[in-house]
Design a protein around this nucleic acid. Structure first.
Lengths: 200, 200, 200, 200
DNA sequence: CATGAATGAGGCTTCATTCAT
DNA sequence: AATGAATGAAGCCTCATTCAT
């Protein structure tokens, strides 16, 4: 689990670190190479251009996130329960991968003219999945008949922004509390429903 | 509000346009000056540096948004109703000021090393306000006792991301439908509560 | 005649010097700027790219040479006499513009893939002119009926290579002697004529 | 002439191809190795540096050309006839070795500061030979008493430039016609000598 | 005030060369 | 002997900023 620490991996890790903190445009290849402990030229042995590192990180990150969360919820039955699991896993994932989360937030909106492609891809590849779960839940009568696309986007926005802002409260306790709050909010709403309220 | 519509305003408008579409780092002062129909040197008559235009836009934008929404909800009574108004106004504001919204999303996360300041400022100046309203609502028994900071952040995240992703669905109809969905979700939750639920 | 020593002219002069001695590829923009006494960036105010300086020099040089020689021979009557004048002027021109001559010799053969364009242009714009004069001379019975294109090219090759190799013998005397030799050779041939001469 | 056709020869052939079409400076060792079907490192087993390949090619080429032409004219008697043979063989050689011809044209004029050496070497090793033949011819009364150095250089310039420009007319027919033209021109001159002249 | 020509620091990228295998 | 991964020096070009007009 540590032998694959090849140069390529080191470059990617370094780039992720730097891109996510300083932004793609402010990062220099020199710095990436330095942190990865390789020569500047070596970066170009593995990636044709600086931009390609970013593209790779975003693609890979998105795919990894999708797979990771997908795996975690595969066995969960019931749409509501599944959504619950998704919210939890997504929040955790973003929390554990702050860098990716920051990268997605920062660079999603077109770093190269006409490349809203990333936003598009997030929508299609990830939000699309959420939407399906929600629609299934609605059809099966487990969830309210709200516009699924909007709800899915809202869920994504909620968790990502909260995860980003929660970076200060990085102790585990806080995360659990935050998750509970979001679950309550997302499933039950903020209103104090006169009678009862639904469970987590 | 009188005659200062000239150069300074034009520069700011041009910069907002360009920063929000291409990102701060990819924008050139040349291009800003060009779109503002002023000479490149003139930009420096009004702003000490390129970065200061961004700073000003973010500060101003944040303040304007706060004031705008503040004005709209001042007369609204009741915490829940107030929150409802906030959600509506926020969504509309972001929708009408896509550029600012994109700018906040893009540049919030530290465009210069020490400046998580922006995220901080958003939190303190805007999310703080939301938080207060929510806490008041909880105290007054109108809202559920959830962690107010998390809820406020979630509300902010929800609306901003939805507004950003909704740029395609830019017809008014869509916006109303989206707002309704978010209201339902935020106040009532996604779960199909057996009992009741409130309308927008 | 000295006031037009603008930055642009200085850059061109510097580039011509350097390109012709070191070759285009070995020249650095830094060095050009240095010799032109301008900042490195200034070069790019006047030319979009290093390559464009070369292109401009070659185009301009070719045009200038054509005009210069054209002017000198305009009033000369008779094809043979005209050719004589051309040979003289061309040799002198190359001798006085060694740099351009070297540039033409060095960079004519495709410095950018597929751009035999320069060789083509030399052929069409300059050698073409020679060819016409020769053909006219043949038609009028002043010159022998040889293949005009080959003769024109040979004339061009003769003068340019001799001018290049003659750079050591740069005293005026030598040049006159060289010219005379070429005139004799080109018009009369190397064979000791009246009496005998051999067949091909 | 036996088994050494392998790597070293392949590298030289590849380099000649590439240098002559793209120029020395634009060629990469990578590309040379690729075309020679050897590893990049292997090139350095045979040559200390990229530049040395060029040097070798030029030296070798010059020597080979000298020998080749030398062989062909060894048995020819009479200075004029010998010169005739030289012109023919030189033209043919350049035509068949376009690559070398281009290389000589491109890189002769100082690819490295102190190396007018190549031009010098061409002059001494090759043009020198022509000069001797011419001088002998003059002494023996077969040729006109023109400046032999200039004539030799002119002959060299004539044939090389014509050969280069003739690359389009690469059919054998054309070559013969070109050769004949040059022979007529060089030996008889362009002037229509009132008395006699030879036919095509 | 307004302007844009001038500048040079700084970034991305290429590529000759080395060296461990 | 043969290889190609690794490297960093070096070059082209961009662009924020200045300043003389």
């Amino acid at each position: 689990m540590s032998g694959t620490d090849s140069k390529r991996e080191r470059i990617l890790a370094a780039a992720l670190d730097i891109f996510s903190t300083q932004g793609f445009a402010n990062a220099t290849v020199q710095e990436i190479a330095g942190r990865a402990k390789v020569g500047k030229g070596t970066v170009y042995t593995y990636f044709p251009a600086k931009e390609d590192i970013l593209t790779y990180l975003l693609d890979e990150g998105l795919a990894h996130m999708g797979q990771h969360i997908g795996n975690r919820i595969r066995t969960v039955k019931g749409s509501a329960t599944k959504l619950q699991a998704i919210l939890r896993e997504q929040l955790r994932y973003f929390h554990e991968h702050q860098s990716l989360c920051r990268l997605l937030a920062r660079e999603a909106w077109g770093h190269d003219y006409a490349s809203d492609s990333l936003a598009q891809r997030i929508r299609s590849s990830y939000i699309g999945m959420l939407q399906e779960v929600i629609e299934k839940g609605i059809k099966e009568g487990e969830l309210r008949a709200l516009d699924s696309e909007t709800v899915a986007t809202a869920l994504y926005g909620m968790t990502s922004i909260v995860a980003l802002y929660a970076k200060d409260l990085s102790c585990e306790k806080a995360l659990e509390r935050i998750e509970m709050t979001l679950q309550e909010l997302f499933f039950g709403g903020i209103t104090l429903s006169p009678a009862t309220m639904q469970e987590a």
